[in-house]
Design a protein around this nucleic acid. Structure first.
Lengths: 340, 340
DNA sequence: CTGAAAGCGCTAACAA
DNA sequence: TTGTTAGCGCTTTCAG
């Protein structure tokens, strides 16, 4: 059923119907006539046809690296919460961590498929910059900060610094780092740098051996723990870039009777459920993912409404959740850390 | 830039351009002309305008109760995997477990907003039935089986039966159940019935006191564990409808020095990460969520392609993952991280 | 193989 | 306040 047919059935003109759905001038009589006809026929205007005329899709493209990660899911939930309230829906695409796909989707979205884009970026290449500058619709980037764009960022550096400092303050003299690739500017580079700065500030020198790069998985955390704990002496604290990696580390420690936190402290970034539930609850830092989703959505909405995009970066705070994995009661002598 | 402008720039007719993008008859010359012009201008046809003509949106609506739950995320990932490959994108909407919103979104989708719908249903009311019957586009339901519709289901009943039986076989004589509302036909009713049948088959009678209903959260699992373990004597096994609930139960046990599995066995449905990582690893049953997403997507695609929807139900298998929480006789390693 | 022309369902000037 | 009408950008006959 189209608008003409419907208008005829309702006994009004096409324009009246259009006005009904677009809050234009309309007399009570016609309004009632139309309402009655809707009841009968279930008519609703075609959104695509509306879009051809108005250039408004009421759709926001969301590009994310992975759905089944707690942080992404939380961000997306925050985005949806704000956007749905304003009558927008989410067009979700999953890049499976393939940054070429990010570009591909950005290009797809460029052509009035959506009214705006939120990009959960893990990297920021020259190609990103080029494509992003060609976008004709507002874009907000979550997780990476870059001059000239609208960004919502977590304080990866500050959080890592604070978390590392916590462990050092608790007596760690020989820290280790299990991170992710530095190509990931936020979860990789920034967290690594925060860790390094805290270590340096406390006057400790750290070898490259004590810093390893893992994948984003539990299994990779486990494997890298194996490498780290094969070193003699092994470290007295491990900072992990993600809770999932820390979960793998703690699993390894458990299987190998390495006591947490007495022999080694563990901490990580993310504050996900796994850290609250693991055998030794994990000291972690909360980065307000859901909030970042909400804020990004608000920022995007502002750009859409105003029709102009004023580049800016919003930096979200962090919050340390100290749990058992760093709660040392007894300080051990350094010599106790030999493995075997 | 629209098709007319672009055609002019390329030096061909509108129809040629349209044919280029729709794989119609076209000479090599024109094809090259068009390709060159695309390079220059970055032109791409407006999807909405295409849709007005063709009635094809290349969009699939996905209605889900919650994004940040591991099972939903996995299902959605499976859906996306198949659909993206075929050039479809996902229009995701989140009902926050509000089943009126499910209806609302179904109605929204009814009007050529999308080419098909996948509904992750937690309930199935008369209203659902009515709305679903009025849909003019294909719909596949995940998680609920209902005559007359296309459904992909997990074997909640069978899985719960098998899991309960496992604990009974291991010597449990006094089992308890912590489930979710029976209004949820799959996670609630079916799992409850599977549990009850296994108990009955082993000749045990179980009191109502031993069966409690929780929310879908860790905290609710904890609170209900408190109720269950306040009973004297307390049960020697607890079957939980979800891993998250079990996590709460195990947290309670840990805090109250109730030894798992020696004093009480615990098992649950879901096989999520939290179960692999918890202080005592959790025996759980894997329901192949990602696979169900994939299968639902395939089923939907088939309906869209064939233009007809042949009602049918696909029942997925389950797989038991036995871990420590039911492994009686296995000595646990002492992580002794009690906090105070 | 090609181009002209007639719509798809809707919105928004415009004149009434 | 209303109805008429001219497009929005595209696809798809149809006649060449």
């Amino acid at each position: 059923m189209n608008i003409s047919e419907f208008a005829q059935k309702a006994g009004v003109s096409k324009s009246a119907v259009s006005r009904y759905f677009n809050k234009g001038y309309l007399s009570e009589d016609k309004r009632e006539l139309i309402e009655r006809a809707i009841e009968e026929t279930g008519y609703a205007p075609s959104i695509s046809a509306q879009n051809v005329r108005t250039k408004v899709t009421k759709l926001i493209g969301v590009i994310l690296p992975k759905l089944s990660s707690e942080s992404c899911a939380r961000i997306t939930e925050g985005i949806g919460e704000i956007l749905n309230k304003k009558g927008y829906e989410l067009l979700l695409v999953n890049t499976s961590n393939d940054c070429h796909k990010e570009i591909e989707y950005l290009e797809l979205f460029r052509n009035n498929r959506v009214d705006g884009v939120i990009l959960l970026a893990s990297m920021f290449t020259a190609m990103h910059e080029r494509v992003l500058h060609k976008m004709r619709i507002p874009v907000v980037i979550i997780g990476q900060s870059h001059k000239g764009f609208c960004c919502v960022c977590h304080d990866d550096y500050g959080a890592s610094y604070a978390l590392t400092k916590l462990m050092l303050d608790k007596g760690s003299k020989d820290p280790a780092y299990i991170g992710v690739t530095d190509e990931d500017k936020a979860a990789g580079l920034a967290r690594h740098n925060g860790f390094l700065k805290a270590v340096k500030d406390s006057g400790i020198t750290i070898s490259l051996e004590r810093q390893v790069i893992a994948e984003f998985t539990l299994d990779s955390g486990y494997e890298n723990a194996k490498r780290i704990f094969a070193q003699k002496p092994y470290p007295d604290s491990v900072f992990c870039a993600t809770d999932t990696i820390a979960a793998g580390v703690m699993l390894y420690c458990r299987e190998n009777r390495i006591k947490i936190p007495d022999e080694v402290m563990v901490s990580a970034v993310g504050d996900s459920m796994v850290g609250r539930m693991s055998m030794v609850t994990l000291t972690s830092v909360h980065l307000h993912y859901k909030t970042s989703g909400r804020e990004a959505a608000r920022m995007l909405l502002a750009s859409i409404d105003s029709g102009e995009q004023i580049p800016r970066t919003m930096q979200l705070d962090y919050e340390i959740k100290e749990r058992e994995s760093t709660k040392r009661n007894v300080k051990l002598c350094e010599t106790d850390n030999y493995n075997g």
